[in-house]
């Protein structure tokens, strides 16, 4: 028997393509956010509120990732923001090469912020670098407070956590402080925001922080 030593990262091909995407973004001066969450946490609603808040002061473009339908892209387009829809046909996450393909259809000139809304899934997207500056994880109060413990990968790799549906706290079995402390046990550096897309509570605070990241380029990698 002979043994061939390999020692290679399984996802190195994706990582290489992500590095290429990152170079494209850097050369155009674009700050890129990869939004992840479980299905139904309100990623698209957070995105809508974010676009409403930021679209007049930042040039924003969106890439939507969904298993089926362009419903989310329609919601973004209704706000007058350029958007490309990627349909994965059953695939549970976006990969760097899909972003590379999508970039071919976007006019990147002048874009300051690109928001990629990943497929709703708290497992797989954590493994796939797309070339983003940071991941933002959305968790909603209706999902309970133990999500960070059950899906640590996503919370470990994120820069910020938006706790959505904060207005529903009185009606659901979710302890806000527990949710926060669980998330911080996995990732003590997480920036935590509390938001409601219905009452718009916390949206301004999150958007001001995001805009700061875009303009300060602190996250440049």
């Amino acid at each position: 028997m002979s043994i061939i030593t390999v020692e290679r990262k399984v996802l190195e091909k994706n990582d290489e393509l992500a590095a290429r995407n990152r170079e494209v973004f850097r050369s155009h001066g674009i700050f890129v956010v990869n939004m992840v969450s479980s299905p139904g946490s309100g990623k698209t609603s957070i995105l809508e509120r974010t676009l409403e808040y930021l679209k007049d002061s930042l040039r924003v473009t969106v890439i939507e990732g969904d298993v089926q339908t362009d419903l989310d892209a329609q919601r973004v387009a209704a706000l007058g923001v350029p958007v490309v829809q990627i349909i994965t046909n059953g695939g549970c996450h976006l990969e760097a090469h899909l972003i590379q393909d999508a970039l071919g259809t976007i006019d990147l000139k002048g874009v300051q912020l690109l928001i990629i809304e990943n497929v709703g899934n708290l497992v797989c997207p954590a493994n796939y670098d797309l070339g983003e500056n940071m991941k933002i994880v959305v968790a909603s109060t209706t999902e309970g407070d133990d999500k960070p413990l059950k899906y640590p990968g996503m919370f470990r790799n994120a820069s910020a956590l938006i706790i959505n549906k904060i207005d529903l706290l009185p009606y659901v079995n979710c302890h806000l402080e527990e949710l926060k402390s669980n998330a911080l046990r996995i990732n003590p550096t997480l920036h935590v925001f509390e938001a409601s897309c219905t009452t718009k509570q916390g949206i301004a605070e999150w958007c001001i922080w995001l805009k700061e990241q875009v303009t300060s380029k602190k996250y440049e990698v």
Binding site: D70, A73, Q74, A77, P82, V84, C92, D107, C124
Partner: peptide
């Protein structure tokens, strides 16, 4: 890209081949 020209749907064969469930993709 102009606002409103948004339906660039990715249904290519390469996509079907390469995007599958998590452990299968790994």
């Amino acid at each position: 890209m102009r606002v409103g020209t948004f339906l660039a749907l990715y249904n290519s064969d390469s996509l079907r081949k390469s995007i599958v469930m998590h452990e299968l993709s790994i």
